[in-house]
Amino acid sequence: MTTTPITLPAQESEEHRALRDAVRSLCSTYDFAYMTATADTGGYPTELWQAIGELGLIGVNLPEEYGGGGAGLQELFIVEEELAAAGCGLLMLVVSPAICGTIIASYGTEEQKRRWLPGIASGEFISAFGITEPDAGTNSHNITTTARQDGDDWLLTGQKTFISGVDQADAVLIVARTADEKTGKLRPALFMVPTDSPGFTSTVIPTEVKLAENQYQLFLDDVRLPSDALIGTVDAGIQQLFTGLNPERIIATAMATGTARHALDKAVEYAKTRNVWGTPIGAHQGLAHPLAQCEVELQLARLMGQRAAALFDGGDWEGAAPAANMAKYAAGEISAKALDQAIQTLGGNGLSSEYGLARMFAASRLPRIAPVSREMLLNYVAQNIMGLPKSY
């Protein structure tokens, strides 16, 4: 891909500000209260998903000729961040258009692009993404889900765990491994697996994270797929895989920074109005300084996320990788820190149902764990950016 040098503007463009305003306007209807009510009833935020689809915001990063908005990750970053800042961030926005849509747009055949991308862009077709396995964890080299050829078909066998939104997905882009005929070694390959395929089953994973989007364990028992279920080639698996994983980290950054903004907004508003010593508690440095520190770290994480998105959109995928990893690390840290400080700022009210902060606690930890842990992100920075010896 041809790369284009990028320079982040000092101010957002009018188009980007208008995009933020459009999402904020939508969130006057679909907000934190909507998401918590949906989660508490075991539902899915279908109305919100359909609403952003009708506005053309789900596939804003996908090519126009396949029904997308013709923009990029910078625009999808804005959409996800503003949704999360309103308390209604969507995991499947990270997964379906950012990971799966990008991979298909980059490596799919013309027929595959026309089959799947318009639906992904409109939100009418949802694709989940399956890479994590029970015994592999963050070590994707230990993936044991295998694909073997049977005539013109493929047969997939294995397990996946902590896969988002399978109950709403029409298909799952599965990372499996195929045998290299020359070396006998296994290499990654990507397959689109319809969720109604014979031999494909899923079970929900109970968690303490109260979200309207659930996690699932998948079982693939000789799932038979046609030859055109393979995305790209078996020879470019790693390259294809990271074409989707870097956008995942970038849009996950947007969700985490939006979540931090949501928590800080509640804390700041409370600190401006709560008065118990003759002046608002926000005037006291014991609260003002920690909140200010969170704001500084939040803005730095946002900038790195925006830089990663701009690099990716400019075609510099190699340069986008370090930025995406550092942005994801910084966003995960401030997501947890901002909520912790927000709860501390509100004192006892921080634990009340009225303000909704305490129920966000488990979710605020997610960006430090998934889609890649903070420890593996630090390993990446140490080894690939700083040139330190590999530790594992």
Rank of each mutant, 00 (worst) to 15 (best):
T102Q: 15
I104K: 06
I104A: 10
A105Q: 13
A105P: 09
G108K: 03
G108E: 07
E110M: 13
R114S: 15
R115Q: 08
W116K: 08
W116T: 00
W116D: 03
L117K: 00
P118F: 02
G123F: 03
F125S: 04
I126T: 12
I126A: 04
I126C: 08
S127L: 11
S127T: 11
T132S: 14
P134A: 04
P134G: 11
D135T: 12
N139A: 07
H141V: 01
N142T: 07
N142K: 10
I143K: 05
T144M: 11
T146M: 07
T146W: 08
Q149H: 12
D150A: 02
G151H: 05
D152K: 10
D152F: 01
D153N: 12
D153V: 08
W154G: 09
L155Q: 01
Q159T: 15
F162S: 13
F162M: 13
I163K: 10
S164T: 15
G165K: 13
V166I: 10
Q168E: 14
A169R: 13
D170F: 09
V172T: 14
V172I: 06
V172D: 15
V172K: 13
L173K: 06
L173T: 06
I174D: 05
I174G: 03
R177S: 08
R177P: 11
T178V: 09
T178K: 00
A179V: 15
A179Q: 05
A179P: 04
D180Q: 07
E181L: 00
E181D: 12
E181S: 04
L186T: 05
L186Y: 05
L186N: 02
L186H: 01
R187S: 07
R187I: 00
F191A: 00
M192Y: 01
V193H: 02
P194D: 01
D196G: 09
S197R: 04
S197L: 08
P198F: 00
P198D: 12
G199A: 06
T201V: 02
T203D: 10
V204I: 14
V204G: 12
V204W: 15
K210P: 11
L211T: 15
L211S: 14
E213T: 00
N214T: 15
Q215A: 15
Y216W: 12
L218M: 06
L220W: 13
L220H: 12
D221L: 02
D222M: 10
L225W: 00
S227T: 14
D228N: 08
D228T: 11
